[in-house]
Amino acid sequence: MPDVDVAGPDLKVRAGGCLWGKVRFTVTGPVEDPHVCRCTHCARRSGAPFQWWVGFPLAGLQWTGEGDEPTWYDTYPGKTARGLCSGCGSHLAARDYGDDSVVGILVTALDHYDTDAALTPTNLHRVAEAAPWLAQCASGPAVPESRT
């Protein structure tokens, strides 16, 4: 499903899904706190030095793929659950227990994330926990694209 601007940025329907396309979703509503998290937990879980998150109203989330909904794992028991595709392992979402208003979506799980200006990170969370070489790497010379 293509992204559709129904009636302004707060009602834009954004679509996304896992690497294989088994788990698909749409989110509608205002973008909340697009940020990069550099905490040890996000790094270890994702295999990357940081993750790019954004919040959306939980009421605006709809699972649409053949797998319906991701498999939810308590990564912080009793506090936070993460949604992953049970087939390909893609990280897709997070929800905090006790907060039924917002769902966290990994920005890179959204289709067209690279051209949606509303998703530009506005915060760097947990900077003190970042890999010490990250700032140096960001300002270093350009490296040819890898095909890993």
Score class of each variant (00 low, 15 high):
Trp20Gln: 11
Trp20Asp: 11
Trp20Met: 10
Gly21Ser: 01
Gly21Glu: 05
Arg24Leu: 08
Phe25Pro: 02
Thr26Gly: 00
Val27Phe: 13
Pro30His: 02
Val31Met: 06
Asp33Gln: 10
His35Thr: 00
Cys37Asn: 05
Cys37Arg: 03
Cys39Asp: 02
Cys39Gln: 13
His41Tyr: 11
His41Pro: 01
Cys42Leu: 13
Ala43Ser: 10
Ala43Gly: 12
Arg44Met: 12
Gly47His: 04
Pro49Asp: 14
Trp52Pro: 02
Trp53Leu: 12
Gly55Arg: 04
Pro57His: 10
Pro57Thr: 05
Gly60Val: 02
Gly60Ser: 10
Thr64Asp: 04
Gly65Trp: 04
Asp68Thr: 04
Glu69Cys: 12
Thr71Ala: 04
Thr71Lys: 08
Asp74Phe: 08
Asp74Lys: 04
Tyr76Gln: 09
Tyr76Met: 08
Pro77Gln: 04
Gly78Val: 13
Lys79Val: 09
Ala81Thr: 05
Arg82Ile: 10
Arg82Asn: 07
Gly87Pro: 01
Cys88Leu: 06
Gly89Arg: 02
Gly89Glu: 09
His91Val: 06
Leu92Gln: 06
Leu92Ala: 00
Ala93Val: 01
Arg95Tyr: 07
Asp96Gln: 15
Tyr97Gln: 03
Tyr97Val: 02
Gly98Thr: 15
Gly98Pro: 10
Ser101Ala: 15
Ser101Lys: 06
Gly104Ile: 01
Gly104Asn: 11
Gly104Ala: 06
Ile105His: 06
Leu106Lys: 07
Thr108Pro: 00
Ala109Pro: 02
Asp111Ile: 01
Tyr113Val: 04
Tyr113Met: 06
Thr115Ala: 12
Ala118Leu: 07
Ala118Phe: 02
Thr120Leu: 14
Thr120Asp: 09
Thr120Met: 04
Pro121Leu: 09
Pro121Ala: 14
His125Ser: 15
Glu129Trp: 05
Glu129Asn: 02
Ala130Asn: 07
Leu134Thr: 14
Ala135Leu: 08
Gln136Tyr: 11
Cys137Phe: 11
Ser139Asp: 08
Gly140Gln: 14
Gly140His: 11
Gly140Glu: 11
